[in-house]
């Protein structure tokens, strides 16, 4: 039976940059466990002859031609940015990456 631990939730929280309180960890562990158990029930039905599905519609090869279309103006592009400088998006520097 699939289950999710408190430690798993804490790890996912870190990856998602979410600061979770102790009570939130308990709360989400419980909720996610319910979801996982529901999915596990579906897995029980899925036999080897049923391939996993990632798209609801059986469709492949949706392509566009390699044609340039107008972009946004720079003003439009930067309009929703919390901060800009020198025609660029200004973001906090992430220190543990190069």
């Amino acid at each position: 039976m699939t289950s999710i631990s408190r430690a798993d939730v804490a790890h996912l929280g870190r990856l998602a940059r979410l600061e979770l309180t102790e009570s939130e960890l308990d709360h989400y562990s419980e909720q996610l466990d319910v979801i996982l158990q529901s999915v596990a029930r579906i897995s029980e039905v899925a036999a080897d002859d049923i391939p996993p599905m990632s798209h609801p519609i059986p469709m492949v090869n949706v392509f566009r031609d390699d044609v340039v279309k107008p972009s946004l103006t720079r003003e439009e592009a930067l309009a929703a940015a919390p901060a800009t400088e020198d025609d660029r998006f200004r973001v906090p520097r992430i220190l543990d990456e190069e």
């Binding site: 390699d66 044609v67 340039v68 279309k69 972009s71 946004l72 720079r74 929703a80 020198d86 025609d87």
Partner: peptide, 28 residues
């Protein structure tokens, strides 16, 4: 290619900053 992978923005090198962007490649 002339245009980007998922949208019609130009791929020209050396253009002014943020002039070849659209909702798709800005992740809007």
């Amino acid at each position: 290619t002339n245009s980007k992978m998922w949208c019609g923005c130009s791929t020209d090198f050396g253009s002014d900053a943020n002039t070849q962007v659209c909702p798709v490649c800005l992740g809007l």
